[in-house]
Design a protein around this nucleic acid. Structure first.
Length: 503
RNA sequence: GGCGGCGUACCCAAGUGGACUAAGGGGACGGAUUGCAAAUCCGUUAUUCAUCGGUUCGAAUCCGAUCGCCGCCUCCA
């Protein structure tokens, strides 16, 4: 069965055939590190994390590159509007009284912390834009030599009319856009749609580098064109990113790269949809309704204004956020709400408890092969899972099969299934739920089991409570259970004895 | 003004011409089980897919109109 992916270039699902199988070069637009990551980042990077994992699971040898943008490009079009045109990173640096590089370093670390918490695999390479100034200057030079760019007063602009493919990704034409242009056009540009590939820096500008055109800094779209080629060694199989970057960012990347190198920059363009909040409102900085991942994980929103705009009843485990994202499709928008998070939490706990129950039962299960019934169900789940993932990474259906496996798992534990049956179920959870979806982890069962010391203490407490129950002293038994509940431990009296877990 | 997308149960959300009563999760309700709970298991919860027309043997899925919502066109995952 072949993998089909939705390619923005063709606006259809296409069969996935890498340029040099089994190798796959995948580049995803990374964050601009001038603030903490928010839920939008989580959606994008969880989506591409699962795509990466499925490709690897399918046998592809994937190089995964994701840049860190540590130059906070001011836009060429807002030049002249002093307050709006400032470099984001420089602004943040001044606010915090730090060097810009200290700011980007801090937020890059914060970003990786959050991504780790979401169980997102780290990219093979996370190149920084500032580490590739030489290569960017080189590409600009080639654009000038080939007549695709022109220099004006220390800045260099790409001439969109020199590249006939401009607009092929986003489906627009230069002439149509001109009519509805909302922004003031820089006088230096020959055409409003031309974009800066190198910007002249004013004397006081902190982040600047020497270049053949004088001191300056690279244009926003340049880094991706350069770093993807450098680390994937040629055209990309997959270029991913958020849908809002389709235009102008990705359109410009294509233009720069293809104008200079010829051929196709990236074979498949994959775009994830956006996160909205409270019924479809865009989540954004200017709207004051965004939630950072750290806030989501801690349940605390410090900014009073944003706190009023975002309702969050409690902290959520990062894996609950991952669960929420996986239950919808990456090309669909997802709306954040406290209700949605709570539903995801309940679902995640159901999954976690089933995995823990299977692992817990394995030790004392009777030896034997997996019975035909369980084996057949596991096989069926695996087949439906693969079919879903091969259909443009349909994680919603893949997750549904995991809940079918939850049913199989609970039934097996209840009926005292064989060791073979339990380990087959566990293995299916590990591979499909763990390796591919990244939602089943060892951390899951650690949380349910607790440490060894606590385990000993809990054995004693459960024994004492069992004595009380035998003596019909239910008041004492309930007091113990209620007290433990307050302390964050749940007791379950099952037919074969009492078990405990963290709530 | 230009380009694009969405509207499926109480909530989240798959499905995008025909296999079966439109996946799955949450919630609610009923039953089994239980000292009581929790968990688990079984069952119920959309004759219907924004509305109205049309194409078709057949439509949630295609076409048209209408209403509502959203994204991009300016930094943005």
């Amino acid at each position: 069965m072949s993998l089909k992916v939705y390619n923005t270039l063709s606006r259809t699902k296409e069969e996935f055939v890498p340029i040099h199988p089994p190798r796959v070069g995948m580049y995803v637009c990374g964050p601009t590190v001038y603030g903490h990551a928010h839920l939008g980042h989580a959606k994008s990077y969880v989506s591409f994390d699962v795509i990466l994992r499925w490709l690897r699971h399918s046998g592809y040898d994937v190089s995964y590159i994701q840049n860190i943008t540590d130059v906070g490009h001011l836009t060429e079009d807002t030049e002249g509007m002093a307050d709006e045109g400032e470099d984001k990173i420089v602004r943040e640096a001044r606010r915090r009284r730090l060097h810009p590089m200290a700011v980007t370093e801090m937020y890059a670390r914060s970003y990786f912390d959050d991504m780790d918490a979401l169980n997102i695999l780290r990219p093979d390479i996370s190149p920084r834009a500032t580490g590739h100034i030489t290569e960017q200057i080189e590409l600009v030079t080639k654009m000038l030599e080939s007549g695709h760019a022109y220099e004006v007063n220390g800045s260099v602009y790409f001439d969109v009319h020199s590249f006939k493919g401009y607009g092929k990704l986003s489906g627009r034409s230069v002439d149509e856009m001109e009519a509805g242009a909302r922004v003031e056009v820089s006088q230096e540009k020959r055409h409003p749609s031309d974009f800066a590939v190198w910007k002249k820096a004013e004397a006081g500008h902190i982040m600047q580098w020497p270049s053949p055109w004088g001191p300056g800094y690279p244009g926003w779209h340049l880094e991706c064109s350069v770093m993807s080629t450098k680390y994937c060694g040629g055209p990309l199989d997959i270029h991913g990113g958020g849908i809002e970057n389709q235009f102008p960012h990705h359109e410009c990347e294509i233009a720069q790269w293809e104008a200079v190198h010829g051929g196709t920059f990236a074979k498949y363009w994959l775009h994830n949809n956006m996160v909205t909040i409270h019924g479809g409102q865009k989540m954004g900085k200017s709207l004051n309704n965004y939630v950072s991942l750290k806030e989501l994980f801690s349940g605390q929103i410090d900014d009073p204004q944003r706190k009023a705009n975002v309702s969050l009843s409690k902290p959520y485990d990062p894996m609950v956020v991952r669960q929420l994202l996986l239950v919808s499709h990456y090309r669909s928008p997802i709306d954040l709400s406290d209700e949605a998070l709570q539903a995801a939490e309940s679902g995640y706990h159901k999954l976690r408890d089933a995995v823990a129950a299977v692992r817990g039962a394995m030790g004392s299960a009777r030896p034997g092969e997996a019975d035909a019934g369980v084996a057949e169900k596991a096989k069926d789940i695996e087949a439906r899972f693969a079919e879903a993932m091969n259909d443009d990474f349909n994680t919603a259906i893949a997750m549904a099969t995991m809940f079918d496996l939850v049913k199989v798992a609970n039934a097996a534990v209840e009926s005292g299934a064989t060791q073979g049956a339990l380990s087959l179920i566990d293995e299916t959870f590990r591979v499909l739920g763990g390796d591919v979806l990244g939602i089943v982890t060892d951390r899951m069962t650690e949380a349910a089991d607790g440490g060894e010391t606590l385990d000993g203490v809990m054995r004693l407490v459960i024994e004492l409570r069992a004595d009380a129950r035998r003596n019909k002293d239910f008041a004492a038994a309930d007091r113990i259970r209620d007290g433990l509940t307050d302390a964050g431990i749940v007791l379950e009296d099952r037919p074969d004895g009492t078990v405990w877990k963290r709530s």
